[in-house]
Design a protein around this nucleic acid. Structure first.
Lengths: 352, 352
DNA sequence: CTGTTAGCGCGTTCAA
DNA sequence: TTGAACGCGCTAACAG
């Protein structure tokens, strides 16, 4: 087990040069300090022959920076999202030579504290703090001593660090526009509404999506025909709300606040022998995988989790490397809105 | 930014003891080497006052072990699974004081090599190598120099390291039994079959599930009424296969090789005005989230991804710590089958 | 019982 | 142009 790694000293001794010479050559600064091409070649050859790889732990201790990022999220049940964000972040990190520690807190603040400490102990160069539900929350302390980016965490006031958020407001507008542009005017809401204050969840998405929808409706002189503010956005709730609507007559269109609610709506509509989109149009949010699997395909405004994760890691690395170059410069900051693209499928039918 | 961390030397100097004394005390071995209670208290107090935390990088360099694991997977599109495995592993690791580096290769062997190297450079204590589709594959070289556990990777011959796999064979038996025990005898297969060799995917799951199903059927003097070997296990394919079956008459029961196929089956069955389970019983595999959302709830044999991840991390840590205690003992090995529990919902109806 | 010393593997002065 | 020496922060021998 663990056959000993070859060290720089071994390479140097084998190549009959001093350790510092080997170090210089292998870090690419050989020519810069004018080490003879012959010696450089010899060092490189023996390094390759011995399979030398620098010990990153030692380099980390020496340089104080480890090319390592921390990704800490609270990902609860609805976790598919988390996975994509993490992947996006890992991918971006890898492209820039960083590795990432991943931690999950399950919303437990004590655990979060421990995880963050453990990561800082391991000298991570920066932290992505992610949440699965965008609601405001208290930030852990001590984040100001390490570059940090907030991912999918809406915070009141200026957190003094970059924040990556999906553009839910525009998503709301786009969803409503998709319906209105199709000539639909009898529009029902399932998830939140009908009034701006009718929101039952802590998610910031609910407020913003609703606001965007109402804004567009209002611009066309419309108001929601009904609204069903719901706490849990799952298929059974969508099913129930859809039935309430259907009991009062066939609606032209329904906006679901996420795809799982839409799934329940499909079930209720189809159970009555009605057809989507011929009888009722449906639009939704998230673009979870079921959106493509439903029949007919569900038109939905996608939450680009992977891109968000990627964006967060990129901002973080930019910030780390900027800090390194300008230690006394101002810290990076600002809200970065990631656009939510509309995935057009077959659940909306143009109305004359 | 990055206000300097307090070091052990500072604590020692502040507490007016030698560094080694402070080290001993803070690592809990103070009493063991009989350091006066008074001194110990003083050291602990100043450490706490200064907010001292050991620098894990330094410890790693010194001890050669970093309390860090690598989790490398190839997770392709069907990624929800990966997320759960990772979480299980992270959770188990955290419980035992380990942190985990996560990497994704997307099936790219070059990338895998780089990732593995980068992790080994960072002195990880062990590696979990995971795959999303269980098919046999070549193992990267050099894995024998670091403790490794294979997760969801079936390999021909003895890999010389622990392997964690779901018990697909038993799952196949259980799925078939659920139907047979309900008195159903007209059983159709969607995904693989009807003969043992009718498998169109590289996934090991397909073979084993089929084998388990056929075994039970055979034990009851039954054979599949039809089998539909499919390459891509997605709803449209399930829909199409179900229609083929329905065109020939109403089947008593259908076994779907995963929940997405089952979703397509639901769509086809319900589009014809038939009802599940009154007219057709359905059983499936995976227990993806749609299984619970479908109406009626889909009875399915769950793939316990989280538990598998957890198990892999535990085995890995056991192996690491065992190696440390017995450096010349034999390496851990063996295949660890994780049971796949049946989630009984409402898609099977007893037949007289 | 406590303090001194020597590295872990590497990068970086500073002399030669 | 190259080599010797120091130190990042910590642990583990070994003296005292």
């Amino acid at each position: 087990m663990a056959r000993k790694r070859v060290t720089l000293a071994q390479v140097a001794s084998e190549a009959e040069v001093a350790v510092s010479t080997a170090s210089l050559v292998l870090s690419g600064r050989g020519t810069e300090v004018r080490i003879s091409e012959k010696v450089q070649e010899r060092v490189r050859a023996t390094a390759a022959r011995l399979g030398y790889r620098p010990n990153a732990v030692s380099v980390g201790l020496r340089k104080g920076s480890t090319s390592t990022l921390a990704f800490v999220s609270d990902s609860v049940a609805s976790s598919r999202l988390a996975g994509e964000m993490i992947k996006g972040a890992i991918e971006a990190a890898r492209d820039r030579g960083y590795m990432v520690f991943v931690g999950e807190t399950g919303g437990n603040l004590t655990l979060e504290r421990q995880l963050l400490d453990a990561m800082v102990d391991r000298q991570v160069d920066g932290i992505v703090l992610a949440s699965m539900l965008t609601h405001g929350r208290e930030l852990p302390t001590g984040l100001d001593s390490t570059p940090t980016v907030l991912l999918n965490i809406a915070v009141d006031g200026d957190p003094g660090m970059p924040v990556v958020l999906p553009d839910e407001l525009q998503a709301g507008r786009d969803a409503a526009s998709a319906l209105v542009d199709a000539g639909l005017t009898d529009i029902h809401l399932i998830g939140s509404g009908p009034r701006p204050e009718d929101v039952r969840t802590i998610s910031a998405a609910a407020h913003l999506r609703l606001q965007g929808i109402l804004e567009v409706l209002d611009a066309h002189g419309l108001t929601p025909s009904s609204g069903h503010a719901i706490n849990q956005w799952l298929p059974p709730e969508g099913f129930r709300a859809a039935n309430e609507i259907l009991d009062a007559g066939t609606p032209q269109a329904i906006v679901c606040f996420n795809d799982r609610l839409a799934m329940g709506v499909y079930q209720a509509v189809q159970a009555r022998g009605l057809r989507i989109p011929e009888d009722v149009s449906v639009v939704s949010f998230d673009d979870a995988s079921i959106a493509a699997w439903l029949r007919p395909g569900l038109t939905t405004v996608a939450l680009p989790h992977r891109i968000m994760g990627k964006r967060a890691a990129e901002l973080l690395i930019d910030s780390i490397e900027h800090d390194r170059a300008h230690p006394d410069g101002p810290a990076a900051t600002g809200v970065h809105l990631v656009p939510m693209p509309v995935r057009v499928r077959e659940s909306i039918r143009a109305h004359d």
